[in-house]
Design a protein around this nucleic acid. Structure first.
Length: 592
RNA sequence: GGCCCCGUAGCUCAGCUGGAUAGAGCACUCGCCUUCUAAGCGAGUGGUCGCAGGUUCGAAUCCUGCCGGGGUCGCCA
């Protein structure tokens, strides 16, 4: 665990502690808002802190004056502890009350050394402290192939899970199978038609309201192969259960195969039907009922817009308004069966009872209106002991050479996730899904994402990694393999890395642990993709400097000592990129 | 109409949970290949952060109200 920013923050807090001990500052200060970060302007040093600005607000003192008292305290503290390689930090108070700190180059060299020793484990942190997190994602209905939107949720969820694991959480990845509602009955009826068709019957066009997709033809044949004609004369009540189970199993196999192709995995597939059959819903609602959170009432029509067929009707309702929702929510349909919401409450309660107090759900844009009620339900059902964060993934708009690819099930231009992944590859798809914040709509152009140019971020980052590998291949012609291992390079004369561009790159690499922590805390895996593009840019820049000035090239035949130091930097770049791509789920390439 | 998300350079988007003169890519102009991958790099041009208030040392960021775009809206999931 090497995070220079965290180390400096520790130093600053210690220095403030010293001031408290000397009575300069009062005890019991809230220091949570003290931030240590790289300043935007390099002229402001290597790291900057707002400590004096934060404290000024608390103790009602002039921030600049405070900064000037804290600055020497930091320097004194550091000299006493001997940390940060002795050298002495330049601590300067600046304008409104910032403290700008310049770290000795040796600190950065030590960061690079630590990076090489940690390998792709660099950036691992323990901010999660082993806490258990449940991440639920995809959860596509088992009624057909997944579309690109599902793919986005799959990647966001999978990368978020990997990110949290890297940040020290104990992560559990779940998929909720909606195999109990009316949808799967429709699926069963649709399949039954294909089944009859497989047995030689002409079923004509698929009626409105059933799934017309051709993917069911094969499944119908499979059902016919398994059961023969045993259902032909039977009534629906007889065949429905068996056909439905078969259909769901087949659809889940299809979905799992697609996820597999994407490299997306889950630890647990939770079945709604199993929850229903185990009586989990009744049990859950009974618990809510005991607390007076369920009642029979009549909902008012949606404000400002009454549906044509609206009629007041008594319903079984959950008091969601007590927990921050806008209206109370129905739990029972008019036919007496549970709503999806009722089952979902039971499911989230089940997660909590299995030991998860940190819940994250990744949903599609069309479920945005569902967030409040689910969070309300989680609060109710766990007495506020669990938190639910919902990541809404906005739409993916498909283009080909700038022209929109219209998605229409009727027109037969429906593009499945499978088709897209087969076309562009899993790595490209995964990276692209993280080039936007999850709540921002994303344009995906088939032509652009496979293009080999810097306009294509996937390529750009991969190219940096491949270039680093290329340098190492050339180095292998000069050095013995044992001289080029990461452990060996960690022992190179890193203090020879003194060029501003080299130090800038090391600083960039040293940010990786901080990026991981920030992204994990915010539940925002896309930050990794953006950071990797910055690392790649820095590296390409340094590469080209070597083109202009031969003395800056990585491999210098005349100077093996300096060469090994630079190779250490090159490996550092490759390791950070590989480390980041691993979280995103993309394979770094050695050559392209 | 209610609720949720979004509005930042001509275009596509970042902006690290309130910090310093608001960043990157594309496009446009100029420059860099006998040499580790030019599949790349450098320099320049380009901004009322939708609008108006408020909170405070300090706001693109937080609050309120408008404007514009998208999603959603009792027994679908």
């Amino acid at each position: 665990m090497t995070n220079i920013f965290r180390d400096v923050r520790g130093l600053i807090l210690a220095a403030i502690g010293d001031l408290v001990a000397h009575g300069v500052l009062p005890p019991g200060l809230d220091l949570s808002r003290v931030a240590v970060e790289p300043p935007r302007d390099p002229a402001h040093g290597d790291v900057a802190t707002n400590a004096a600005l934060v404290l000024a607000g608390i103790v009602k003192q002039n921030p600049m004056a405070l900064a000037e008292r804290i600055a020497p305290a930091i320097a004194a503290r550091q000299l006493r502890s001997g940390d940060f390689h002795g050298g002495g930090l330049g601590v300067v108070a600046a304008r409104p009350g910032f403290l700008n700190i310049r770290l000795p180059a040796a600190v950065w060299h030590a960061q690079l050394r630590a990076l090489l020793r940690a390998g792709t484990g660099y950036g691992d942190t323990d901010i999660g402290a082993g806490a258990r997190v449940n991440v639920e994602y995809v959860s596509a209905n088992p009624t057909g192939p997944m579309h690109v939107g599902h793919g986005r949720g799959a990647v966001v969820g999978d990368a978020l899970a990997a990110l949290l694991a890297k940040a020290g959480f104990q992560v559990h990845r779940e998929y909720y199978i909606n195999d109990a509602g009316a949808q799967v009955d429709i699926l069963a009826r649709s399949l039954f038609l294909r089944y009859r068709e497989a047995l030689g019957e002409d079923v004509g066009t698929i009626p409105e309201g059933l799934y017309p997709g051709e993917y069911l033809i094969e499944t119908g044949q499979a059902l016919a192969a398994r059961d023969g004609d045993k259902w032909l004369g039977a009534s629906e009540v007889e065949w429905l259960g068996s056909v439905r189970d078969f259909a769901v199993a087949q659809m889940m196999a299809l979905i799992r195969a697609d996820l597999d192709r994407l490299g997306v995995r889950h630890d647990w597939f939770a079945s709604e039907r199993r929850l229903v059959e185990a009586g989990a819903i009744e049990e859950c609602l009974a618990a809510l009922d005991e607390r007076g959170l369920i009642y029979t009432g009549i909902l008012a029509p949606p404000k400002g817009k009454t549906p044509d067929d609206w009629e007041p009707r008594p319903q079984t309702l959950f008091r969601a308004t007590r927990f921050g929702d806008d209206v109370d929510r129905p739990l029972k349909k008019s036919d007496g069966s549970w709503t999806y919401f009722a089952a979902d409450i039971a499911y989230h309660r089940d997660k909590f009872r299995r030991g998860f107090a940190n819940l994250i759900d990744v949903w599609g844009a069309d479920h945005g209106g569902y967030v409040k009620r689910m969070q309300a339900a989680v609060r109710a059902v766990t007495d506020g002991a669990a938190t639910l964060d919902v990541k809404i993934c906005q739409l993916v708009n498909l283009f080909d050479r700038g022209k929109p690819v219209r998605m229409s099930k009727r027109a037969g231009t429906f593009v499945t996730l499978r088709e897209v992944v087969d076309e562009v590859g899993k790595d490209v798809f995964r990276f692209m899904m993280l080039t936007r914040r999850n709540d921002q709509a994303l344009d995906f152009d088939f032509a652009k994402v496979t293009e080999q140019s810097k306009e294509n971020p996937v390529f750009y980052v991969q190219y940096a990694h491949a270039r680093a590998a290329s340098v190492m291949r050339h180095a292998a012609e000069v050095f013995a393999p044992e001289e080029l291992s990461d452990q060996a390079l960690a022992g190179a004369a890193l203090d020879l890395l003194t060029d501003p561009a080299e130090l800038a790159l090391i600083r960039q690499l040293a940010q990786w642990p901080r990026i991981v922590e920030g992204a994990a805390e915010a539940h925002e895996p896309h930050r990794l993709a953006f950071y990797l593009q910055e690392v790649a840019a820095q590296f390409h820049m340094l590469w080209n400097k070597g083109r202009d000035e031969a003395t800056l090239r990585f491999i210098l035949a005349s100077d093996p000592i300096l060469t090994r130091a630079r190779l250490a930097l090159v490996r550092g770049v490759a390791l950070v990129i590989a480390s980041g791509l691993a979280v995103i789920g993309v394979t770094p390439v050695e050559e392209m």
